[in-house]
Simulated assay, not measured.
Amino acid sequence: MTDAARGRPAAETLADLLVAATDTLAADPRDAKLHRVAATTFFRGVPTQEAAAERLGLPFSTYRRHLGAAIERITAWLWERELPGPGQEVSSDRPVG
């Protein structure tokens, strides 16, 4: 599967989108902790979430709370780009619900 617009493999396009979505968290100083947690968890090669929490110097429960919030923000950013704007049709192969 490729990104028809750029002729790139879909996996590369998705990886770029995930990095961009994560980087949006760094734009707001209030979300810097969410960016650090997401970047450490997904892009810094830690073997477990426990190791990520330790690397960040956070209690595991705090780490999990920040990770959940980061995932929610990243997901919302991705959905904003997926959903059609005014005058655009919704793809018929997109799942509903």
Score class of each variant (00 low, 15 high):
M1I: 06
M1V: 06
M1T: 08
T2R: 15
A4Q: 11
A5S: 08
A5P: 00
R6H: 12
A10K: 04
T13W: 08
L14E: 12
A20R: 10
A20M: 07
A32Q: 11
R36G: 11
R36V: 08
R36H: 14
R36I: 03
A38T: 03
A38Q: 01
A39E: 14
A39D: 14
T40L: 09
T41R: 13
T41P: 03
F42V: 07
F42Y: 15
V46H: 13
T48D: 09
Q49M: 12
A51Y: 02
A51F: 02
A53K: 01
A53C: 03
R55W: 06
R55P: 00
G57Q: 06
P59N: 07
Y63V: 03
R64S: 09
L67V: 00
G68A: 12
A69Q: 09
E72C: 02
I74G: 08
A76W: 11
A76C: 04
L78Y: 03
L78M: 14
L78N: 04
W79I: 11
R81F: 02
P84V: 06
P84M: 06
P86H: 08
P86R: 10
G87W: 10
G87M: 07
V90N: 00
V90T: 07
S92H: 12
R94V: 09
R94S: 01
V96E: 13
G97K: 09
